[in-house]
Amino acid sequence: MQETGSADPFSLSGVIPPTITAFDEDEAVDYDRTAAHARYVVDGGAHGVFPLGTNGEFPLLSGEERDGVVEAVVEEIDDVPVIAGVGAPSTHQTVRHAEHAESVGADGIVVVTPYYYPLDHDAALEHYRTVAESVDLPLYVYHIPSKTGNALSLDTLDALADIENLVGVKDSSKDVPWLAQAIDAHPDLTFLAGSDSLLFPGLEIGCSGMVSAVANVFPELVVDLFEAYEEGDEDRARDLQSEVYDVRDAIKYGSYMAGVKSALPHAGFDAGPLRSPLRLMDEEDEEAMVADLEALDLL
Rank of each mutant, 00 (worst) to 15 (best):
Y116N: 13
Y116R: 04
Y117I: 15
Y117A: 15
L119W: 09
D120E: 15
D120T: 13
D122L: 14
D122C: 12
A123N: 07
A123D: 14
A123V: 15
A123S: 09
A123C: 06
A123I: 11
L125K: 04
L125Q: 13
H127L: 14
H127S: 01
H127D: 10
H127A: 00
V131Q: 07
V131T: 03
V131A: 08
V131P: 00
E133P: 01
S134I: 14
S134V: 15
V135F: 14
L139A: 12
Y140C: 11
Y140P: 05
V141Y: 05
I144F: 12
P145G: 13
S146P: 00
S146C: 02
T148H: 08
G149L: 10
G149Q: 11
N150H: 11
L152Q: 03
L152N: 06
S153V: 04
L154G: 10
L154Q: 08
D155V: 05
T156M: 04
T156Y: 10
T156L: 02
T156S: 11
T156W: 09
L157I: 15
A159I: 12
A159V: 14
L160V: 08
A161S: 15
I163Q: 01
E164W: 07
L166W: 04
L166H: 02
G168I: 04
K170H: 05
D171A: 13
S172M: 02
S173R: 09
S173L: 09
D175H: 03
P177R: 03
W178S: 00
A180Y: 03
A180R: 06
A180W: 02
A185K: 09
A185M: 03
H186Y: 03
H186N: 03
H186W: 04
H186Q: 08
H186L: 09
D188E: 15
D188N: 12
T190Y: 01
L192G: 06
L192H: 08
A193I: 00
A193L: 00
G194L: 01
S195P: 11
S195A: 11
S197P: 00
S197V: 04
L198E: 07
L198R: 06
L199E: 12
F200L: 08
G202N: 14
E204M: 12
E204V: 10
